[in-house]
């Protein structure tokens, strides 16, 4: 039963992370295009920082770093008269009230908290990748379109929302669909973040069971469980490919690109 729940966990993670990462990416790409220099630097740094380093390191890093940042902020807000330093040698110490989640909180709060941290981590890392894709897509929109918008007297903001954003998706979609595939394949990493996901349960349930502890004793079945996971991911990738191809065909409709032209001729 838990295995099925964990599949749902994975799907939920994908469902939440994809839009959040897209939002992060959109914000990052808009910031990188901004006319205001500091904002532009922030956007560009955000895009640049994730490259060149194994993403696993990022996942492991962000989870602890985010956790500690939240606890530290709560510590400053809730316990102003705490005199000892937070970092004592090898220990990270905050007052009881600042623990996140609270020590006496029920189990589900702990699990939800861990899950949200994981989602946030995924969103930050994939947001940077999405920002990169969207930044490229925004630059790929023909410049004449923007000039025309300016000639019609649209303000910068109007141009951005009414001309640039609707047209950029067709350029962004190949990159974004790549990213979606990557996101699917990154979900087993949840396991590393301490969430009880499919990998965890495949290991737990697949291990040898003796008749003493369970009604269904069996040998070491972990190989078969992981084979099932492998097939699950393959099927998921395949379905996504088909869906994204259709979406691309729809978005291409009526666009001034080579593919759009081909579609027009075929019709």
């Amino acid at each position: 039963m838990n295995l099925y729940w964990s599949v749902l966990t994975v799907l939920t993670l994908l469902g939440i992370t994809a839009p959040v990462a897209l939002a992060f990416g959109f914000a990052g790409a808009s910031a990188a295009r901004s006319a205001f220099a500091p904002l532009r630097w922030i956007g560009k740094t955000y895009i640049a920082i994730v490259r060149g380093v194994p993403d696993i390191a990022f996942f492991l890093f962000f989870v602890i770093a985010l956790d500690q940042a939240i606890e530290y902020l709560r510590h400053r807000a809730l316990c102003p008269d705490w005199s000892e330093p937070v970092r004592q040698g090898n220990d990270f110490v905050v007052c009881q009230a600042a623990k996140m989640p609270l020590g006496e909180a029920p189990q589900w709060v702990h699990e939800t908290y861990g899950f949200s941290i994981a989602v946030l981590t995924f969103a930050i890392v994939y947001g940077a990748f999405a920002a990169n894709v969207l930044f490229g897509a925004m630059r790929a929109v023909p410049h004449a379109q923007l000039e025309t918008a300016a000639a019609y007297g649209m303000s910068t903001r109007q141009t951005f929302w009414r001309v640039l954003v609707p047209q950029m998706w067709v350029f962004a979609l190949p990159g974004l669909s790549n990213l979606w595939m990557l996101l699917i394949k990154a979900t087993p990493l949840l396991f590393l973040l301490g969430v009880e996901d499919v990998v965890y349960w495949a290991r737990e349930l697949g291990g040898s069971k003796t008749p003493r502890f369970t009604d269904y004793p069996h040998g070491d079945w972990r190989m078969w469980y992981f084979l099932a996971l492998l097939v699950f991911y393959l099927a998921f990738t395949r379905v996504s490919e088909v869906v994204l191809d259709r979406l691309m065909a729809r978005l291409t409709h009526g666009q001034a690109t080579a593919a759009g032209e081909a579609q027009r001729k075929a019709a």
Partner: peptide, 18 residues
């Protein structure tokens, strides 16, 4: 290419174990 390397490692390890 269609499945996560992470799962491939797990599967490979348990396959060899079996």
């Amino acid at each position: 290419r269609g499945s996560p390397l992470f799962i491939q490692f797990f599967f490979g390890y348990f396959l060899f174990l079996t």
